[in-house]
Write a protein that binds this DNA or RNA. Structure first.
Length: 251
DNA sequence: ATGCCTGTACATTACAGA
């Protein structure tokens, strides 16, 4: 199975690139984040014309998550807290696997209310996953907005006091892994090659100033069947790119 | 210290993103 996740930073702005990418890479499952469309405006035909089932959750022009898959999506869940939350999580059963597409809150700054919200959201996700993982194999993929270790950022010193690298965020991620999930991108020999996000500014991509924040977490049984892991940096180098690269994992 | 760039809507400026 070819599994992928991609924060597209607006599906409306990225529509043509997503269509090209689907045809070139032919994933069996694709998790999307930051679609930035309401459900009523979601371009289902973009996926259906290319042979995919698709489920989306978007309540405004911000956030928004989706899962597209060759096989049907069953037992959909929207969100991890309650109906009033932002559209940051969608889950579905696909061919016997429970798939989560997640867009973890950014946090903005240490001490910002949004930072507390990020930690609370991660704890709510953990509570949900602790229940789910006992039932079936899990794949939890998306933009976690956390760099798991100092090796996952271009310059740790430059990020002192910033979000994405703080201990509380990393502990919240570790609590997810402690449920029995494996970070599929953690074991690369050249960690720079696993960066998944580069700022649009300052030529950050060209200069290698990135972070690994888009993750694929797999149940142990599934992680043992992983046969390849790849960050598609070519797509970050395309014209009009998202600031995130797709991540592709084969099982 | 700030903006750099990109996309969004209460749009020609402010904001969020990471």
């Amino acid at each position: 199975m070819r599994f992928a996740t991609w924060n597209v930073n607006s599906l409306r702005a990225r529509r043509d690139l997503v269509a090209l990418w689907l045809n070139e890479h032919q994933p069996d499952v694709l998790c999307l984040q930051e679609t930035k469309v309401k459900d009523a405006d979601f371009p289902e035909e973009l996926f259906e014309e290319n042979g995919y089932h698709v489920a989306h959750w978007g309540v405004s022009s911000w956030n928004g998550v989706a899962i597209a898959a060759r096989q049907p999506l069953d037992n959909l869940i929207l969100g991890v807290v309650d109906d009033s939350e932002e559209a940051r999580c969608i889950a579905a059963d696909i061919d016997g696997i429970r798939v989560f597409s997640v867009y973890v809150p950014n946090g903005r700054a240490l001490g910002d209310p949004h930072y507390s919200y990020k930690l609370e959201w991660l704890e709510a996700l953990r509570a949900r996953l602790s229940d789910e993982i006992q039932r079936r194999p899990l794949l939890v993929a998306g933009d976690f907005n956390i760099a798991p270790t100092d090796d996952d950022v271009y310059d740790r010193a430059a990020l002192e006091g910033a979000t994405h690298v703080s201990e509380p965020e990393r502990l919240a991620l570790q609590r997810l892994l402690d449920l029995g999930l494996v970070d599929c991108g953690a074991s690369a020999e050249d960690t720079d090659s696993n960066f998944t996000w580069w700022d649009y500014r300052q030529g950050a991509f060209r200069r290698g100033m990135g972070m690994r924040i888009d993750l694929v977490l797999a149940s142990r049984s599934l992680s043992g069947e992983m046969c390849s892991f790849q960050v598609d940096r070519l797509t970050r180098a395309a014209p009009k790119p998202s600031d995130h690269a797709p991540v592709i994992v084969e099982f």
